[in-house]
Design a protein around this nucleic acid. Structure first.
Lengths: 147, 147
DNA sequence: TCTATTGTAGATCTCTAATATCCATTATAG
DNA sequence: CTATAATGGATATTAGAGATCTACAATAGA
């Protein structure tokens, strides 16, 4: 299990945009060159970020991308959700009949059986998400400036 | 990004073993039936758990598997590491020359450049790992018994 | 208006890892 | 011995990530 490369590119691209002058677009070309990735591949990633309102894009000559919000309003968690999708990290093999009658399932308040393994994994995921929610594009930039 | 199905099978199988009488082997057949997975596939998973000292296996007639340690000495984190491998959740596109001179890299104590995105992701992973370390096969069983 | 530039969307291709199965071999209880 | 059961190797199969290409739409500037 690993984060995709796309997530890495997205985060680095956003940091790059955050560091550029306000109101100044950056085209896919310099962005792709700077990250060492092809333009066509990065453009797919940027499109996702645009569809989710994280960046703005201007088409046409001298167009490009800029952040749609201030860098401290863009959390790692949100970027990851956009790129990786929002399915949970662990999905119990539910619907499988065996769980309905089993040791590792427990009825929740509504009487529905819930997998106990799933519960632990959800807890673990939540821990990670809280950390990623607390970290923004801006906070990374700030931590870099103490160099 | 998701945990593999194998991890789910491994955890459920271990809970199953933990609930059986001490000193009593469970064969791959009833185990696989109970989890709703093929014997051949599950046996690969069990072999990994054995190689890592989490379960013991007895070959031959009336052989089978049992826990190699008490259930409270088997953490979720360890099981996940055995099945998923130990690479970190996020690996920065390092070695890429661009990072050596870039905004999102900072020199660590030894003078080596470290990726700032990587640092945040490592922090997030650590949060999750601490939680998974604190949860054992036994703790899941205990939480189930209050049903 | 024309043209060069730039992002968008769809199709498609490759490659890898997860999932899954089969079989020959080894080990052991009875 | 024999039936049973785990092991390890080889080998599909599949899904998703990674990556590229092209036709198209939008826009700035000549």
């Amino acid at each position: 299990m690993q984060f995709s490369k796309s997530t890495g590119y997205a985060l680095h691209a956003l940091i790059h945009l955050a560091l550029s002058e306000r109101g100044h677009n950056i085209g896919i070309k310099p962005l792709a060159t700077s990250l060492g990735v092809s333009e066509s591949y990065l453009s797919k990633i940027m499109s996702k970020l645009r569809q989710d309102g994280i960046v703005r894009a201007v088409t046409g000559a001298s167009g490009g991308y800029e952040l749609a919000r201030s860098a401290d309003q863009i959390t790692f968690l949100e970027v990851i959700h956009v790129i990786e999708g929002r399915q949970q990290l662990f999905e119990c093999l539910n619907g499988n009949a065996h769980l309905q009658k089993e040791f590792s399932a427990i009825a929740d308040l509504s009487g529905r059986k819930e997998c106990l393994v799933q519960k632990v994994m959800n807890g673990a995921e939540l821990q990670m998400q809280q950390y990623l929610q607390a970290n923004t594009i801006q906070s990374v930039i700030d931590s870099g400036s103490i160099e």
